[in-house]
């Protein structure tokens, strides 16, 4: 089956933030005012109300020069998504265009996904349910799946004036990333592709000008070990153990009914006389 990906080549990004505006606009996201942090960057990181944030890092180059490191940050749409793994409601699923989708109607706001996302992307935010109630529900970038369904590109992709963000079939995007990397290496010797295998690769992946840590990205993001133990071992084993225990006591109940009468008389005659009249 064809799968798709969003390639973000941060080496050609000029930090115009059109992707942020397009995202807010298309997804009808509310204003989110944050305290001024002293830099050019608008928000600290993506939130439940601001699904992509243009990160602006002031970076000192090897020879003492200054450069901006711009980075479009949003959900990475992991192929092996921790959020999908820990969701108890099955509200998080993989979409046909490579996205990791959250169904806010099925979400119960438990926030397991929030604290297990290796990239700190998912957050709870106000969501108006079908019944008209405002609830705290997990929200993040949808990869504009609604647009993809209609044959359109994600709004950030559509808007990017420099083709720093492109979307297409994964194979093509991986090839394109290699080409972009070759070009980037002429200016940035440390340039590399960021498509971390610890989460099965990401459907939003980068061509970075430098090491991931320089951008504040985890070098080897993984599905948390605790989440694997929890969902792949503790939960199924726990269900089995509780089931076996219930069966055990039911068996004990029946066998005692059938076979325990004689011995019980010997043991404590009148203790529960009513049973043995």
């Amino acid at each position: 089956m064809t799968t798709y990906s969003k390639l973000v080549d941060v080496t050609v990004c000029t930090g115009c933030r059109a992707c942020m505006v397009a995202c807010k606009n298309w997804n009808d996201l509310p204003v989110e005012t944050q305290a001024y942090s002293g830099g050019y960057q608008s928000h600290e990181k993506p939130t439940g109300k601001t699904w992509n944030v243009l990160q602006m890092k002031e970076h000192e180059t090897a020879n003492g020069g200054f450069e901006w490191l711009y980075r479009h940050s949003a959900c990475y749409h992991c192929a092996d998504a921790a959020c999908e793994k820990v969701c108890p409601e099955g509200a998080i699923t993989y979409g046909e265009f490579g996205s990791v989708d959250i169904d806010q109607e099925a979400c119960v706001g438990c926030s397991y996904c929030v604290y297990n996302c290796p990239f700190d992307i998912v957050e709870l935010a106000d969501y108006v349910t079908e019944d008209g109630d405002v609830r705290q529900r997990a929200q993040k970038c949808t990869l504009c799946e609604d647009r993809l369904q209609e044959g359109l590109q994600p709004s950030c992709v559509d808007t990017c004036p420099l083709d720093a963000i492109v979307f297409g079939e994964r194979e093509e995007m991986l090839k394109l990333a290699e080409e972009r990397l070759e070009k980037a290496k002429q200016f940035f010797p440390n340039a590399q592709i960021y498509n971390p295998p610890g989460v099965g690769g990401t459907k939003m992946f980068y061509v970075l000008a430098d090491k991931p840590s320089v951008y504040g990205l985890p070098e080897n993001p993984e599905v948390p070990t605790s989440a694997v133990l929890w969902k792949d071992i503790a939960q199924p084993a726990g269900k089995a153990l509780l089931g076996v225990t219930m069966m055990g006591v039911l068996t004990g109940y029946v066998t005692n009914k059938l076979f325990n009468k004689g011995e019980h008389h010997e043991e404590g005659g009148e203790v529960d006389e009513s049973k043995h009249g």
Partner: peptide, 17 residues
């Protein structure tokens, strides 16, 4: 810290079982 929260998820379920 977020790792403490993650391990608490596991501990909570194991302890409840």
């Amino acid at each position: 810290p977020v790792s403490v929260v993650q391990w608490s998820n596991l501990i909570h379920v194991v302890a409840f079982i």
